[in-house]
Design a protein around this nucleic acid. Structure first.
Lengths: 104, 104
DNA sequence: TCAACACATAAGCATAGACTTATGAGTCGA
DNA sequence: TCGACTCATAAGTCTATGCTTATGTGTTGA
């Protein structure tokens, strides 16, 4: 979604932790609660926010909601950071390093 | 500075606007107030937060404080976003596009 | 059909943080 | 030296938001 929104969404540590968890693969809302000292509504609300920002997608299967990272959602953040490309550390500025990093 | 901190710092639209302004070149705190409907202490507080996060540096010259974007400060954000590299839009995934974009 | 489940929504509370005015600390020029 | 300035800090207010409990909606299986 919009750039102003995405920063607010990512400013919450719980939501960032959820994203990292989802980066490891799809998970249901209940799966996600594991490891978080959080109630079910709180998790549901966080997922709604992430969904609203387009950072995750929901795949409904019966009574289960499977969440996963949504690729395009990170584009605004990437675009914003690109504005400060000129200010990136020289480590990153070096093209070879960047390519090596892109290859994992 | 730390990754949790940087997202909170960037979640404020005024601070992002300050950064964009500074990306255009060094400026004093008073210079920066121009265009912002904000009091002097508010600006000073925002600059203190940006300074604390290592996103800007301060160059003191008499009673003037000259602020500028600090390169290394964006590294944590870049590192965080890199974790989601696998989820970047295919537009960016394409190496040629990325290189073209890097060349401006 | 109905109890147990998975998830979403409503409503209220409590804290974080962005703002304000007031003031302090240091620097400059007349 | 002293008033005007640039900026920082203090203290208090107000709003946004992340949390809770309570409840609603839809799905599953016995």
């Amino acid at each position: 979604m919009s750039e102003p929104e995405i920063f607010k969404v990512l400013s919450d540590p719980t939501r960032r932790a959820i994203l990292e968890r989802l980066a490891g693969g799809e998970a249901t809302a209940t799966d996600l609660r594991e490891g978080f000292a959080i109630t079910q509504p709180a998790m549901s609300q966080h997922l709604a926010v992430l969904r609203g920002a387009g950072l995750v997608s929901e795949r409904r299967e019966g009574r289960y909601a499977h969440y996963s990272v949504n690729a395009e959602g990170f584009a605004p953040l990437h675009a914003w950071l690109a504005r400060y490309r000129a200010f990136w550390p020289s480590r990153i500025d070096n093209l070879k390093d960047l390519l090596r990093e892109m290859d994992q």
